[in-house]
């Protein structure tokens, strides 16, 4: 936590220059973000993330609780803007390395849906206990992973079977 505090201080100091390097796409909410968020940090924070509406709502409320001047009436606009422009599947850079997942029911789901927000190496490298996979999948669905309940169960079973601790 210590280093995080120092880190934030550095971001504050660097915010104006860094903010100019990131272009936000047009849309309702852009101007609010361009002003309110850049008072404390650079815009590469929001633009580097991919989250669904629930995930973005967490970040927006977190910033409000820390002092960001976003009004009650603007919260929905800001969350919608972020979820639309920086949601699952938007502008994800190609993976640095090709990842081959083991065959099995759920493989295709994991390959297609999980990779809308992050690289598949995040799955390929993981070795988690059953309850940890439970928690990870639930969290991913809660922040916007495009999985129905049944699909989430299938993906979970696949992950628990193939990516358990060695």
């Amino acid at each position: 936590m210590l280093r995080s505090i120092v880190f934030t201080g550095l971001i504050l100091a660097a915010a104006p220059a860094a903010a100019q390097q990131v272009q936000l796409p047009p849309g309702e909410g852009r101007d609010i973000i361009a002003t309110a968020c850049t008072q404390c940090h650079a815009l590469n924070f929001p633009t580097s993330l991919r989250e669904g509406p629930a995930g973005w709502r967490f970040h927006v409320e977190d910033m409000i609780l820390r002092g960001a001047q976003i009004k009650n009436s603007e919260v929905e606009t800001v969350v919608n803007y972020l979820a639309s422009n920086f949601g699952p599947g938007v502008n994800i850079p190609p993976p640095a390395t090709r990842v081959s997942l083991p065959e099995g029911e759920g493989k295709q789901l994991v390959e297609q849906r999980c990779s809308t927000c992050h690289e598949l190496s995040r799955v390929g490298d993981a070795r988690l206990a059953r309850q940890d996979w439970d928690r990870v999948v639930a969290k991913m669905v809660s922040i916007g992973a495009p999985l129905t309940d049944d699909e989430a169960k299938t993906a979970l079973t696949y992950l628990q079977k193939n990516f358990a601790p060695k």
Binding site: F7, T8, N44, D125
Partner: peptide
């Protein structure tokens, strides 16, 4: 966790974020 630190590190991307490690 150093919860804030992880958030700030991962929010900017980087190898830890990409690898989920």
């Amino acid at each position: 966790s150093y919860n804030n630190e992880r958030n700030r590190i991962w929010m900017t991307g980087g190898a830890q974020f990409k690898a989920g490690r």
